[in-house]
Amino acid sequence: MKDAQLDPQLIEDPYPFQKHMGFYLADWREDYARFELPVEDFLTNRYGILHGGVMSVMADTVMGFAGCYTGDPDNRKLGMTLNLNVNYLGQIQGKLMIAEGFRTGGGRKSFFGEAKISDELGTRVATATGVFRYRQAG
Rank of each mutant, 00 (worst) to 15 (best):
residue 80 M to K: 06
residue 36 E to I: 08
residue 107 G to K: 04
residue 41 D to W: 06
residue 12 E to S: 14
residue 20 H to E: 15
residue 11 I to Q: 11
residue 112 F to H: 08
residue 39 V to S: 09
residue 54 V to P: 00
residue 40 E to L: 09
residue 21 M to K: 00
residue 74 D to L: 14
residue 67 G to P: 01
residue 75 N to V: 14
residue 15 Y to E: 14
residue 65 F to N: 06
residue 46 R to Q: 14
residue 73 P to S: 11
residue 98 I to S: 14
residue 95 K to M: 09
residue 100 E to F: 13
residue 59 A to L: 01
residue 23 F to Q: 05
residue 41 D to Y: 09
residue 66 A to F: 00
residue 20 H to G: 11
residue 28 W to H: 15
residue 10 L to G: 08
residue 98 I to V: 15
residue 31 D to F: 04
residue 16 P to I: 10
residue 81 T to Y: 04
residue 12 E to V: 14
residue 53 G to H: 02
residue 41 D to L: 10
residue 106 G to C: 12
residue 73 P to I: 11
residue 14 P to S: 06
residue 104 T to Q: 12
residue 22 G to A: 12
residue 8 P to H: 01
residue 92 I to S: 15
residue 96 L to S: 12
residue 28 W to K: 01
residue 55 M to K: 02
residue 110 S to D: 08
residue 53 G to I: 01
residue 63 M to I: 00
residue 65 F to H: 06
residue 89 L to C: 09
residue 60 D to E: 01
residue 90 G to F: 14
residue 111 F to K: 01
residue 43 L to D: 10
residue 101 G to E: 02
residue 66 A to L: 00
residue 71 G to L: 07
residue 50 L to H: 04
residue 78 L to T: 12
residue 74 D to V: 03
residue 84 L to K: 04
residue 53 G to E: 03
residue 62 V to W: 00
residue 98 I to W: 08
residue 11 I to K: 13
residue 46 R to Y: 13
residue 99 A to G: 14
residue 102 F to M: 11
residue 14 P to A: 15
residue 43 L to F: 08
residue 43 L to I: 06
residue 48 G to V: 09
residue 9 Q to T: 11
residue 73 P to E: 10
residue 108 R to G: 05
residue 51 H to M: 07
residue 16 P to R: 02
residue 49 I to H: 12
residue 88 Y to V: 12
residue 80 M to Q: 12
residue 60 D to L: 02
residue 103 R to E: 10
residue 54 V to K: 07
residue 75 N to Y: 00
residue 68 C to D: 01
residue 87 N to L: 05
residue 90 G to A: 04
residue 83 N to G: 03
residue 55 M to C: 07
residue 107 G to N: 11
residue 41 D to M: 05
residue 19 K to W: 08
residue 34 R to E: 06
residue 32 Y to D: 03
residue 12 E to P: 02
residue 78 L to D: 01
residue 11 I to Y: 07
residue 16 P to K: 05
residue 36 E to Q: 15
residue 95 K to C: 05
residue 86 V to M: 02
residue 109 K to S: 15
residue 52 G to F: 07
residue 23 F to V: 02
residue 54 V to S: 00
residue 41 D to Q: 11
residue 82 L to V: 00
residue 41 D to T: 11
residue 85 N to D: 14
